[in-house]
Design a protein around this nucleic acid. Structure first.
Lengths: 159, 159
DNA sequence: TCTCCTTGGGAACGCCGACGCGCATCTTGA
DNA sequence: TCAAGATGCGCGTCGGCGTTCCCAAGGAGA
């Protein structure tokens, strides 16, 4: 299935405005509400739209500190990876975790209230992870870009 | 303003189901639809809920490769940072960019179709960024955790 | 040219969300 | 202990929205 410019416009709008009504979207894009509803439903059924989710203002919850954590394991054996991954998904302050190529084994993104709070997280969550050889933390001083979807997606009209 | 367990339950549900109807949420949480609507509106007005956005399946668009890019600048002068940041926000394949403490200056998260595509991005987007001294890329082999909101948020009932 | 298929648009119906009102509960102060 | 305000909840109404059906227009292929 190929997406045309109108489909991409719908996606672009819904990624910033998931609650927009059909009539609202239709007038912005230049379609009737019926036609728009059909296209939106198709985009959902085909899997382009995965879900609709509310975005929370994490600063409102005091989570203003982002930390990138590099973790190297004692060994890269399969059961070491499995054991680590089974535990890291349980860490409540971890929002992302990647298995990486190169020297570092895993990279985590952790959200904390402040540096003292990260010390607590390091003690109660990170240091309890199994098979860990080395933990190295870097603090984000500022966030310059934060997009859920790369803008390149919205410029790929096929027809 | 303090949030109780019901507020957190509403937030938890909306982060996975932003289009859930009031009646649907109400029965899950144990409230009437009116009471739920009021609480939801309060959460929006107080800024806890920032927006409602559709989540796209990026794999459906062929974006299956995540790359972490470390970028060091020639200098850390204020205008070097400003010049870099003004350009990096324009890169269509960049989804996250942090100014970091420690040795590396910036860390970017880039989405690409594959390794060849990342070579193109490196050539057309990253290498054109100003004041860059060094670029170091690491590929994510697998994603273990990907949460928009840390689960710790939903366990902070104040009353 | 005829037919099939796709896509857009209009109208009716049913449901949902927004709003105002009244009631119950809890708290504050004398 | 009692009164008064605040807070939270449920019910009912009304307007708007989504859903569905039907029909029209345009393009592709035999």
């Amino acid at each position: 299935m190929a997406l045309d410019r109108k489909d991409l416009a719908i996606l672009a709008e819904l990624t910033t405005n998931a609650r927009a009504s059909h009539a609202e979207l239709a007038s912005k894009i230049g379609l009737s509400s019926t036609a728009l509803a059909r296209r939106q439903k198709t985009l959902e059924d085909e899997g382009y739209i995965q879900a609709y989710q509310a975005t929370l203002d994490l600063a409102q919850f005091g989570l203003t500190t982002t930390v990138l954590v590099r973790i190297a394991l004692e060994s890269q054996s399969d059961d070491a990876l499995k054991a680590f991954e089974a535990e890291v998904v349980k860490c409540p302050s971890v929002v992302r975790c990647f298995l990486m190529s190169g020297t570092d084994d895993y990279i985590l993104i952790v959200l904390a209230r402040d540096i003292q709070d990260f010390e607590r997280i390091h003690r109660t969550e990170l240091s309890r992870l199994p098979r860990v050889a080395r933990v190295q933390s870097s603090f984000a001083l500022r966030e310059i870009v934060n997009r859920a979807v790369p803008t390149v997606v919205f410029g790929e009209a096929k027809r």
